[in-house]
């Protein structure tokens, strides 16, 4: 079914008057945003005091943070990558990232703590839980905002799932950072202070995804 002939001229004319960046400019902007997000994470991490081993064995820290980094890389690859599609990953993939990232982080922490039971003595009170909770949210802000900004107003299909998975991925990177920084390793502290923010960020993405990433009309 062919549209009216004059519509073609109208649309091409309107496009000619509406500036839009081409691929090279858009790619430069996105890369700058991603770099800014990563730099913000690093700056906040260093400002907080950076790496602190405390009484934790080096191998324990390497294993927990390394495992969490693998989860963070996978979550980022699925959430931020689009494969060869303009519409990003399928909704089930994004939903799995949003839902499974936090439980995966907790599960990995439990596995590693089981191998070093002495670190369970490194427990903190509610004040320490709250402090780490806030710091994890703070650490996630840089990458989270940068990724959401790069994608804002562009998702016509599944903006809620997309932002939820981006939130989980940003939270996972913040979790890696706080795990490197915080000397407490008790399961309850890790779950409440280091991983709960990941779930909160995913939930935030599910709630505000349409407003942030949804196609602007």
């Amino acid at each position: 079914m062919n549209p009216p002939d004059d519509l073609r001229a109208r649309i091409l004319g309107a496009a000619g008057r509406l500036p839009s960046p081409h691929r090279a400019a858009a790619t430069r902007r996105d890369r700058a945003l991603y770099a800014l997000g990563a730099a913000t994470l690093v700056i906040v991490f260093v400002a907080l005091g950076g790496l602190r081993l405390g009484r934790r064995p080096e191998a324990f820290l390497a294993l927990t943070s390394g495992g969490w980094a693998v989860v963070a890389v996978l979550a980022t690859w699925i959430s931020l990558g689009r494969g060869r599609s303009m519409l990003g990953r399928p909704r089930p993939w994004l939903s799995v990232v949003a839902i499974a990232t936090a439980p995966l982080l907790v599960a990995w922490a439990l596995v590693v703590v089981a191998a070093w039971p002495e670190v369970r003595q490194l427990r903190g009170g509610m004040g320490a839980h709250v402090m780490c909770f806030v710091l994890t949210l703070l650490l996630s802000t840089g990458p989270g905002v940068a990724w959401a900004w790069a994608r804002r107003g562009t998702d016509p299909v599944h903006p809620r799932a997309a932002l939820a998975s981006l939130g989980a991925a940003a939270g996972a990177w913040a979790g890696v950072s706080i795990d490197l920084h915080c000397e407490l390793s008790h399961e309850a502290h890790v779950a409440l202070g280091h991983v709960l923010p990941v779930a909160i960020l995913a939930l935030f993405g599910a709630v505000f995804g349409k407003r942030v990433l949804g196609l602007r009309t």
Binding site: L18, S20, H22, R23, R82, M86, T217
Partner: peptide
């Protein structure tokens, strides 16, 4: 069509 134009830079 105008949405596609606005976001052409994102086309992979």
């Amino acid at each position: 069509m105008l949405q596609m134009h606005r976001h052409r830079g994102r086309f992979l």
